[in-house]
Nucleic acid binder design. Structure first.
Lengths: 218, 218
DNA sequence: CTGCACGCCGATCTTGACCTCCACGGCTTG
DNA sequence: CAAGCCGTGGAGGTCAAGATCGGCGTGCAG
């Protein structure tokens, strides 16, 4: 009845080198933060999850907030890399859209549900957290907006609006798709969104004017 | 130095009928919750903001959570009504898209920033809150998806995915537009998103097949 | 074998926020 | 004019959770 699933199953007595211990603590913290959110997560829970006592936690991190920020930074960077990688993976703009959408889906589907720290944080009132979350969203949108501006000739402000929209739609739908256990397979969902978005973007002037790859398949 | 801005400027001693007092408390609570989030908001702050003492607060609401839920319910209902009203305001599907987008922008721009309670709550771990937030998003998406399904002939699952996407894009971009103080006027932003979304939707089969209003103006 | 250093643990402190108890003052009634 | 009632106010209880202090066991150098 009181059995608690723990990924590591440490018998609470193992001695680890500092670096390894730190990584393990980060893993445990991620599990707890993802499952319970920042506020409901207790340092006791994290320590217990890691199979250590609380003082050890405080020997590796100054406090709860810093622990959370370490994880947040890690996964913000991860998202940004994925999006940039998707945009750089091809020069065909339609495939760019598809790759970017898929990047969001892959990110959301990633192990441990770490995306919740970025997209569903319950600590957005903390300026440090707000800054991270806003910044990564802005950086992703800027990366997307550059492509949009080149493809459509829209102004910076307007392409940013669209870029924010594309990032937003990817993130929101990916989360919905994951939560609803939709029977629609991931690839189909991505295709659907890509069709929607690409047709929308292609309707603006200048689309495909500069060798962006032909829209041969309607 | 210790001057605190209070919208009502009650001299802290006024006697109000219960209904009016309740409304005033709700208003004060909304201001504090919006400004500070659920966790950082203290019942003391809300009472002080309203110009009453704490026991009065507890005579009208059983606790902090119920107070929050009362506000949340109110604004969830408001959003749902706006979206449904927008969808029912016309039979032209393109104008439906535009009206719905505009409904989100209006909602976000609404006084007091109450949209934060719905879209940026820091209490999503609380099941009651999660239920409300998820439910209103789902209800909005369902309302939208009905139109999409009729217009495109897509399956229920697929039109729901698109509907969630449209709701998501509206919500995300509207919040970005509000936060970034974009020089793009609201009407232009709505037009931009409407173009994007409508072209995307219109690309699916069956679009405009059943008297949905002619797409005469590109 | 013995002393030392290091990392870990049980038990504790303190803060902060939600939530109630006893005294005061204005309004109504005879 | 006087008495009572009801709502208001300040001060306090309780508890959860973040953050910390002395003791213990283990591995290594001499």
């Amino acid at each position: 009845m009181t059995a608690i699933e723990q990924t590591q199953a440490r018998p609470r007595g193992t001695r680890l080198p500092r670096r390894a211990r730190r990584e393990q603590l980060l893993g445990a913290a991620q599990e707890v933060f993802v499952a319970q959110g920042y506020h409901s997560a207790a340092m006791d829970d994290i320590a217990e999850r890691a199979g250590v006592s609380k003082p050890v936690l405080y020997q590796h991190f100054p406090g709860k907030l810093e622990l959370y920020l370490a994880l947040l930074d890690q996964h913000c960077e991860s998202l940004l890399q994925s999006v940039r990688g998707a945009l750089a993976s091809t020069t065909d703009n339609k495939q760019r859209v598809e790759a970017t959408m898929d990047a969001y889906f892959a990110y959301v589907e990633d192990e441990g549900g770490a995306f919740r720290l970025v997209f569903e944080s319950d600590l957005t009132n903390e300026p440090a957290v707000r800054e991270r979350v806003d910044k990564v969203a802005l950086q992703c949108a800027e990366a997307i907006s550059e492509v949009i501006a080149e493809d459509t000739g829209l102004s910076r402000d307007q392409s940013m609006l669209l870029a924010v929209g594309l990032g937003g739609v990817s993130q929101v739908v990916a989360r919905y798709w994951l939560a609803s256990r939709s029977e629609v397979p991931r690839e189909t969902a991505v295709q659907l969104l890509t069709s929607l978005a690409w047709r929308g973007i292609a309707g603006f002037p200048l689309h495909g004017a500069e060798g962006t790859g032909g829209p041969q398949q309607g």
